[in-house]
């Protein structure tokens, strides 16, 4: 049971994912020539289309998620995140395109294939009269080599609620239980559809460190979230989806040309707040420093936040 324990062990950090070094790629947005799905990717999607009646929820989506990577899918309500994720999980049928998840078409899901997945649905795992511990144990019984249920409860911070019935949990506690059920089977690929909805700040930090230790074990994760700090803290790459299309895929630091965006330098001079946009903030600040005898008053250098570029991208789309 201890061979890949998630409890703190003092293990060193993992080297960065290769995709991280590459910088911003646009393998999602570019309408390039048709490529076959990549059978070695954890998830490979080509030209995915999903319609509900006459409405098109997913409209020609291409995406590769590498093995071992944490990929965050961002996008406004109704953008098509859950639809895309649930097609990958085998819950919904697609109307067009190709999908491979761990080399298998999810429309032909087998038990062996599902045994490699962990699924945290946006809609949760249902009500129950069973206690948290009983529910995690039952879930563990569907797997040949599950994690220790009590350890999993500890990891999601539910040890104190282990003997409380599932239906009596608070909203955030219930969500933690969903995460516990998703990871107890030692998934190779973990889907997390808005996993931290309702988490308090401490629970969110605890969840982040859980996700990082899962990554250290080599777990691939597809995460959707509305919390941009979460995407920035966890994801190797983020994809922004709007109206069923991927607008951009990039490492968080490079999204929306964030890496190259001018920095904003601000300071106080003669009692007036001043700002300047500059592509060379270091040179600018060095020059600025010569105008003051000591510290530059109220000096700050800022890049656009992930939220700034995200809102700009979404704004353009709508």
């Amino acid at each position: 049971m201890q061979k890949d324990s998630l409890l703190p062990t003092g293990k060193g950090p993992r080297p960065p994912h290769p995709a991280q070094a590459q910088g911003g790629t646009r393998d999602g947005a570019a309408a390039g020539p048709w490529r076959e799905p990549d059978p070695d990717a954890a998830i490979s999607i080509r030209g995915l289309v999903k319609r509900y009646g006459t409405a098109t929820a997913v409209d020609g989506l291409d995406l590769d998620i590498h093995r071992g990577e944490i990929f965050a899918l961002l996008g406004p309500n109704g953008a098509g995140k859950t639809t895309t994720v649930e097609i990958c999980e085998g819950f919904r049928r697609r109307d067009g395109g190709e999908v491979r998840v761990l080399g298998t078409d999810p429309a032909e899901a087998s038990r062996r294939w599902k045994a490699q997945l962990g699924i945290v649905l946006q809609s949760g795992a249902g009500d129950s009269q069973l206690t948290c511990r009983e529910l995690v144990r039952a879930e563990a019984s569907y797997h040949a080599d599950p994690r220790d249920p009590d350890e999993v409860l500890e990891l999601v911070g539910l040890t104190e609620k282990a003997d409380a019935r599932g239906r009596l949990l608070s909203g955030g506690q219930r969500r933690r239980l969903d995460v516990a059920l998703g990871i107890v089977g030692r998934p190779t690929l973990l889907f997390l559809d808005e996993p931290t909805t309702g988490f308090d700040p401490e629970a969110r930090r605890q969840f982040w460190s859980l996700i990082r230790s899962l990554r250290d074990l080599g777990t691939t994760m597809l995460l959707t979230t509305h919390y941009l700090d979460e995407a920035e803290a966890l994801a190797d790459r983020v994809g922004v989806i709007a109206h069923g299309r991927l607008v951009e895929v990039a490492v968080p630091a490079a999204l929306g040309g964030r890496g190259q965006a001018p920095a904003v330098v601000s300071w106080t001079e003669d009692g007036v707040r001043r700002t300047a946009d500059t592509a060379t903030p270091t040179a600018f600040v060095r020059e600025l420093a010569t105008r003051f005898p000591g510290e530059v008053p109220d000096l700050a250098v800022a890049r656009p936040t992930l939220e700034d570029v995200y809102l700009r991208m979404i704004g353009h789309e709508q």
Partner: peptide, 8 residues
């Protein structure tokens, strides 16, 4: 039921 359908 949906949750169960997503398990092995």
């Amino acid at each position: 039921l949906k949750h169960l359908a997503g398990t092995p």
